[in-house]
């Protein structure tokens, strides 16, 4: 009576790789949308250019003595900041998905419940890459240069993208529990502003009062930014600009924070996703 059996032949058997394949199918969905609404890319293209220009010419002289001396600090700092800011988009996207019916469809399919969330994060990799390219392009136009080798350059990019994907679980959780898209935006930005400014992203932490410097030095974003500086800037540029070329410490700390984000926020997000009914 059932027609299922005859169609089984054309499907791939279920197995442990399902979650990877399904996440990829859902990431493709994000990519199609990104491609179709390029104005959704403003936060990873025009905004960072604007930030770079503003910060370079407003703070450059005051903080580093000259605009060109400020660039090695700023480009890496801004990549850190904007990678974090761009994660708001994932939260808002999830919230929007839930308001429509499409998440019900996903929930009623025999797919892992992580797949829609993981797919959303994966789809954001392209945005992250675009962001890094735009930032570096702008930096290069103003005189910034990667002073180390290509391997370290690629490692820095990979670290920044990994950081973005792990941090994304936090705005995803917010997107799953907040009641409106506006609330998602408000909550995430309210958390990100102190996180990005109370860090080493724009000014050396030595200039901050002790308690703030302590926070800034422990800040996950500071570790990422310092790792980028150690990987990309001339080791002779000193501890602030390049951690004297010692990348092992900051990279390790960044990875630890990535792990913490996933361990803390991913289970909460998955639980919130399962509970939403």
């Amino acid at each position: 009576m059932t027609s299922t059996a005859t169609h089984e032949v054309s499907t791939i058997p279920h197995g442990p790789l399902d979650v990877v394949r399904h996440s990829w199918v859902l990431a493709k969905r994000s990519l199609i949308k990104t491609w179709r609404t390029p104005e959704g890319l403003i936060d990873v293209t025009l905004s960072p250019i604007m930030f770079t220009l503003l910060f370079t010419y407003i703070f450059g002289g005051a903080i580093a003595g000259s605009t060109s001396d400020y660039l090695p600090l700023l480009v890496t700092g801004l990549i850190g900041q904007n990678i974090a800011f761009a994660s708001v988009g994932i939260g808002i996207q999830l919230k929007a998905d839930m308001e429509k019916g499409i998440f019900d469809r996903f929930r009623a399919l025999p797919i892992s419940r992580i797949a829609p969330l993981f797919g959303a994060a994966l789809g954001d990799v392209v945005r992250g890459l675009l962001l890094i390219a735009v930032m570096l392009g702008t930096g290069y136009a103003l005189g910034y240069r990667i002073e180390t080798d290509p391997v370290k350059f690629v490692a820095g990019c990979a670290l920044a993208i990994l950081f973005a994907m792990c941090l994304a679980w936090a705005p995803m959780l917010v997107g799953l529990i907040a009641r409106t898209e506006r609330a998602v935006q408000g909550i995430v930005f309210m958390t990100l502003f102190p996180l990005t400014f109370a860090s080493n992203a724009f000014v050396p932490t030595e200039s901050m009062p002790g308690w703030l410097a302590a926070f800034a030095n422990a800040n996950p974003l500071s570790h990422l930014v310092l790792a980028l500086r150690a990987l990309w800037n001339d080791p002779a540029a000193g501890p602030v600009m390049s951690n004297n070329g010692d990348w092992v410490g900051p990279v390790t700390w960044t990875l630890v924070w990535c792990g913490i984000f996933v361990v803390v926020f991913a289970p909460l997000a998955i639980r919130a996703y399962n509970r939403r009914a």
Partner: peptide, 20 residues
């Protein structure tokens, strides 16, 4: 329960691929 930002065809292909 469809994705309005995708075409009809893309919606159905996505569901098919999610069904392995």
């Amino acid at each position: 329960s469809i994705d309005e930002e995708l075409t009809g065809r893309e919606n159905l292909r996505m569901i098919g691929e999610l069904l392995n």
